[in-house]
Amino acid sequence: MLLLTAIPAAQGDEAPAIRALARELAEQGCFSDAAVEYRRLALREEHPLRRAGWRWMAAHEYWRAGRPTLAEAMADRIEAEAPALLTPTLLLRAEIARGDRRPMEAAFYFESFATGAAEPAAREYARRAAIATRLEARDLAGARAALGEWTEAPSSVVTAVEEYAAGRDKNPQLGGWLGLVPGLGYAYAGEYANALRSLMLNGIFMYGMYHTGRNEQWGAFAVITFFEFTWYSGSIYGGLDAGHRHNRRRAETAAKKVRAGAAWHPDESALPTISLLFSF
């Protein structure tokens, strides 16, 4: 009888050490390793809700490690094992999708979390994040619709959305066409230093082609032509990409204003019960 109780106790004794290790690893930025330790705790846990709590922490660490596939695999297990943790898992799914640059999916999860969350702080965070994520996806109509549903929206959020709506995007295709003239595509997107570098490099290599061709140095001509082809194709590609970069940067700036530094983290003292703390 004594031994039968000693077996779980022996395993249980290791749990605080594993938990401390996981926490320390996370503090040192070794999020993937911390996730593995939380998974170890989950596998030792018999109670489904407590096990799901540790899995939730593992998913959280995988998300912080920038490993969305593993984080989502954890989220799937949590939802299958403990439907009671569905609401905090929605927030995690939203953050994973956002980190993985799937903004429309992230916005859907943020909106679902806002609907299910009981605390006003959680709802405010989710609404801000949903609007910001829709702006990142350049879905202005969706951002305005989400703003319309939020009756107590702060004026700073309204201003950020309207400022974004008033601005103008660049046309990446036009940037690509302009890139046929070395550097002009970059200049169109406002990247003047890149434009100058592209113009100078293309100019030097074009002159090299002309000079070696004129002197019938065909070996050097072939090598310089290869490099010039690379620089010239880079100018066209850069023109296209600079347009996209500009539009993305503009949307991200607006999204940052909407978020206004809002953040959350799990309350570690309550683990494996998942309790979220929000800050603005």
Binding site: Y186, E191, R197, S233, G238
Partner: peptide, 15 residues
């Protein structure tokens, strides 16, 4: 496509 990508990267690096 890696050729224009690396050319664009080298031009952007200082910025």
């Amino acid at each position: 496509r890696s050729l224009p990508l690396i050319a664009d990267r080298l031009i952007r690096e200082p910025s």
